[in-house]
Amino acid sequence: MEAVMTAPIQEKKITSDGIIGMVFVLATEAMFFAGLISAYIVNRAGVMVWPPAGQPRLPIEVTAVNTLVLLSSAFALYMFGRRVKSAAYIKIRSKGLLTAALLLGATFLAVQGTEWVKLVGYGLTTHSSLYGAFFYTLIGLHGAHVLVGLTILLYLFSSFRKPLPFGVLKSRIIACSMYWYFVVAIWPILYILVYLN
């Protein structure tokens, strides 16, 4: 039997499905962090002594350096996206900038992990105080997003194995990068609110 189905003739697309989908994902994520951050601000406003007596101070300096690591990861990804001008680029040139973005993101997560281990050792836990509770919840949920972001970048990396039309490739790079930019952009806000407050 001959296929009679034809490809859909559609109204003009605004942009790719993936990019529009990502816009809505990020809008939801932004509201998620807005909820978390406002909960933190409201509770924090009602407490006089912050951090509470007997609780360790947060590693401000190490985390400042780590913030730069995360920001440079986003910069590497941005440069990667700018350089991809054709599908051939990815085959011919190494994916060095994307690898760099991935490794810098992973470094950020690893440093966060080691700092957490130290903090738990100093007596800051989820149930030691509201201070600890908010720290681990806010920073931990951000860390979970970093992990998801790294997975998305890995997916982007692996999708270069199959030959794809350049348009598809380009919009996939944009959609995946959007998530990573979001994860990176939310971090300085958390750093200022949680570490420097």
Partner: peptide, 22 residues
């Protein structure tokens, strides 16, 4: 509207399983 609820739900779950006390 769902984001803030999920944020609140995480905090409620942590109150139950991690003893956070939010």
């Amino acid at each position: 509207s769902v984001g803030p609820l999920v944020a609140g739900a995480f905090m409620l779950l942590f109150d139950n399983i991690l003893g956070t006390g939010f």
